[in-house]
Amino acid sequence: MAKAHVTTTVNGDAVEFLCDAEQTLLDVLRDELYLTGSKEGCASGDCGACSVIADGRLVCACLMLGVEAEGLAIETIEGMADGDQLHPLQTKFLEHAALQCGVCTPGFLVAAKSLLERNPDPTEIEVRYWLAGNLCRCTGYDKIVRAVLDTAEEMRGG
């Protein structure tokens, strides 16, 4: 079976790649494009470590085929900072020590960014439910939730 040729946009750059139909977007990002910031924690959509944004929607890259990316705009953790300027969420995660091992962190950041783009003033409960698909085994979530709430406040100009 010949590989499929896919043209897409990743973090604003036009990207072309070849992949097998079975390969997930996560496989493609990590193994073909060497964008290893998205992590594989479960390959079944249960941990959120591979969270990316596809055409504005938060998705698990492990639950999307690489071929489905044709024509879409994909955003990954690697595109979150603007040059050498960290995104406010990245800065707040550091300030709040909202990470320990850090393997779930890219997924949390992408998911939180997607939340704040939709809801700039979320409640703690809204943050917790929005992020329920991102597992973290180190932090107990406390500092992550605080970091997201604090970022939201700062981004609102609070």
Binding site: G45, L58, L63, G133, N134
Partner: peptide, 9 residues
């Protein structure tokens, strides 16, 4: 159904 991520699909 599932998480926010799953909801996207």
């Amino acid at each position: 159904i599932g998480s926010t991520q799953i909801q996207g699909r």
